[in-house]
Design a protein around this nucleic acid. Structure first.
Lengths: 192, 192
DNA sequence: GCCTTAAACTAACACTTGTTTGTTTAGATT
DNA sequence: AATCTAAACAAACAAGTGTTAGTTTAAGGC
């Protein structure tokens, strides 16, 4: 039941995620990708229309996951601090469940071809807007300091989107430790 | 006087910084780079040994600047908070003075060939160690909260190394505003 | 006016790029 | 057993890759 996607197609995608992350999209050839899968390059075209098609699937699948995860953050009843914490946890959770793919999402999206590139940029802006809204409302309610919203959002995403590096390092941290650790630094600050 | 480096060599480097940043090292060809300079591809080899040679000069020059800038951070008399602030200002200052090149430094170093790649990694580790030391000493002195040093350093560098994005955006911020704004968020936190 | 030298050029090399074409293989369906 | 189909393959395409060889151009010092 449910042979919805062939196994080969899935392997192609997983190996693409790994290779695109390791070497960058432009530096990975179709023959190299095929070899990693254990087939010949033209066989990939039985499963994907083009090289760009593989990248597109990776990037937009992660984008969907970010939106879905943010959708679970409760809308109105929590405090801004709790809301931001929940959003950070959701975001880091998606990265944790898609370590290689999310790294590709963050660093290789620029190789998407139009019109998908424009659509991607819009989606990312809309997603980030959710975070900006939390901060704006939090500032008005007095939950947050009167910081520059853009600078704060920027700092948050910079930290969150680099968490890939933490997962591949020696000192193992759980997703909760990473999410809460970063949230602590961002919310309470370093100063003792 | 002081025709130490020809003008063409400098233009090659500047255009390389721009193109490597825009499209990624692997996606930029020597013919494309040459065209941007206004010469033919083989002429580049009168000034640089190879494509990798161009990337190497860009990356290691920025690395030197980071070390020199960190060297100006006063060693012993300041509080840890002031020391961290000074280090952040120095770091952001280097990025501000080398917007394109520092973006290449952060995203394209992986394309360096050995043995330079290994040397680069070591330099970066040593540089980051300076920040880890500040935080460690600050924690011992009670200037900082008892946070996870690695997580804190990670958060700092994630934010600092993405500042390139702030410079190319519409809402113009000065280097001081960016450095102090990020430092404020990191030190004092968002919570009001 | 000649010689040197730096830096440009054209032409080409060997190889790799993403992709298409046409064919074969193997497994499932009838 | 015959048919259909998904998915593999080898061969080849045109274009592009970094780089080298050999040559020409142009400016400066004697």
């Amino acid at each position: 039941m449910a042979a919805s996607v062939s196994n080969t197609r899935l392997v192609i995608r997983q190996k693409a995620e790994k290779l695109f992350r390791e070497k960058g999209y432009a530096a990975v050839g179709m023959r190299e990708l095929a070899k990693e899968v254990g087939i010949e390059a033209p066989s990939i075209y039985n499963h994907y229309k083009s090289k760009d098609d593989v990248l597109r699937e990776i990037c937009f699948d992660i984008a969907d996951q970010f939106f879905k995860a943010f959708g679970t953050v409760d809308g109105n009843e929590k405090s801004s601090v709790k809301k931001l914490r929940a959003a950070i946890r959701s975001h880091v959770g998606v990265i944790a469940n898609n370590i290689e793919a999310s790294s590709v999402f963050f660093h290789e999206w620029m190789f998407l071809e139009e019109p998908h590139l424009a659509k991607f940029k819009k989606m990312r802006f809309d997603y980030e807007q959710g975070f900006r809204d939390i901060i704006e409302r939090g500032k008005k309610k007095g939950d947050f300091k009167n910081v520059n919203t853009r600078l704060a959002t920027f700092t948050i995403f910079s930290a969150l989107n680099a968490t890939y590096d933490l997962y591949k390092s020696k000192e193992k941290l759980s997703t909760e430790e990473i999410a809460d650790g970063i949230a602590d630094v961002l919310l309470k600050g370093l100063k003792g």
